[in-house]
């Protein structure tokens, strides 16, 4: 009997593929997303809808232009993950066009101009985020008070009108709806030569302070962390990048906190503020743009942690996750180059 299907060993391959990996990432995002929805309302849902549709449409259009297989690439779900991360990072009351622009840049500039999935040196979601962050700084502050302390939470219709038609509810003004995030508020507070201990005297700010960090944010971070730990348990992500990021951020902030706790926030506040857990478990762990060597991943994560602290503390932006990730993306090839592990039996060699 003759056979004409010579294949190269191994003759065993795993059944699941990239789509299943991405799907699990999406599933792991659910708890944190629900928490965010609880605290920030319908804006997040609109953001998700806009980002996902723009991402899929853009990806499809580019694939068509590049004459690539549409279905198999769209089904790898990577564009969906990018869209979701972006939507979760943008302010929940951002005007619709802001999300559109961010997503367009993420998919077009961040991903496909470099050759599509697997070839992008930068995290696409963060590319999109930074583009709108730099171009539309005012709109990027459209955060609102967490629902638990917000006397005037918007309903779905009001949110729609605000985001798509820029129509405020009749009785409200921008100032009454929007609110600085805790990090933003503290930055302002400190820049006016106030001390952290005097935070309580600032009524607006003290309402934002929660048990671990900021009201609402602590929960959002905890839920994202839970999703991330589940990913780790499912062996979808490597422990090294989150470990490096969280450890370095804790250590650096601890040192400064111990030096002067009137000027510097505690490590706990740092860890559970803003998008740290989202960044540690979902954004920095994007394997394509991260370092790939085992040691390199720890360095990569640690670098992001340090940059986040630097930008938060001394930079012009309230949070520096996007910049920190992009900076370390740039360094990833160099890190990889210098962290090649010793091959089996070569440990003693220089």
């Amino acid at each position: 009997m003759h056979f004409n299907n010579a294949t190269s060993s191994p003759h065993m391959m795993r059944d699941d593929g990239i789509s299943q990996l991405m799907l699990q990432v999406l599933i792991a995002l659910i708890p944190g997303t629900l928490a965010m929805f609880y605290f920030f309302g319908w804006g997040l849902v609109f953001n998700l809808i806009i980002a996902i549709s723009v991402a899929i449409a853009t990806e499809a259009a580019v694939l068509k232009l590049r004459k690539r297989a549409l279905k198999s690439t769209l089904l790898d779900l990577s564009a969906l993950v990018t869209a979701c991360l972006l939507a979760l990072a943008l302010p929940p009351l951002a005007p619709w066009w802001l999300t559109v622009i961010a997503t367009l840049f993420a998919i077009l500039l961040g991903k496909h101009l470099y050759g599509g999935l697997g070839f992008n040196p930068f995290n696409p979601a963060m590319v999109g985020y930074v583009v709108v962050m730099i171009s539309f700084p005012r709109e990027m502050t459209f955060w609102l008070l967490p629902s638990t302390i917000n006397p005037a939470a918007l309903n779905i219709g009001e949110t729609f009108n605000l985001m798509f038609l820029s129509q405020l509810p009749a009785t409200m003004s921008w100032d009454s709806i929007s609110s600085a995030t805790l990090l933003d508020g503290i930055k302002n507070h400190l820049s006016q030569d106030h001390l952290l201990s005097s935070l309580a005297s600032n009524q607006q700010l003290s309402a934002l302070v929660g048990k671990l960090s900021g009201t609402g944010w602590e929960w959002i971070n905890l839920f994202f962390m839970a999703g991330g730990l589940w990913l780790f348990k499912k062996r979808i992500i490597d422990w090294r990048i989150p470990f490096g990021l969280l450890t370095s951020l804790s250590l650096v902030s601890l040192v400064f906190y111990l030096i002067n706790n009137e000027q510097y926030l505690s490590p706990l506040t740092h860890l559970f503020s803003g998008g740290i857990m989202l960044a540690a478990f979902f954004i920095a762990t994007d394997p394509v743009s991260a370092s790939t060597t085992p040691r390199g991943r720890i360095i990569f994560g640690a670098g992001i942690g340090v940059f986040i602290f630097i930008i938060r503390q001394w930079g012009g932006y309230p949070d520096g996750i996007a910049f920190a990730v992009l900076l370390m993306n740039m360094a990833a090839p160099l890190i990889d180059y210098y962290t090649v592990p010793a091959a089996f039996g070569k440990r003693d060699e220089p």
């Binding site: 299907n5 003759h11 198999s72 490597d238 394997p287 394509v288 790939t292 085992p294 090649v340 089996f344």
Partner: peptide, 29 residues
């Protein structure tokens, strides 16, 4: 089933190959 492998997709540098390499190499690179 054993003779047909699914079409190869782009490498996403996930590093699973690095984790399983008994020769301690970087298969992805």
């Amino acid at each position: 089933e054993d003779t047909q492998s699914p079409p190869a997709q782009a490498c996403i540098r996930c590093g699973e190959c690095t984790d399983v390499c008994p020769a301690n190499l970087l298969p992805q690179q």
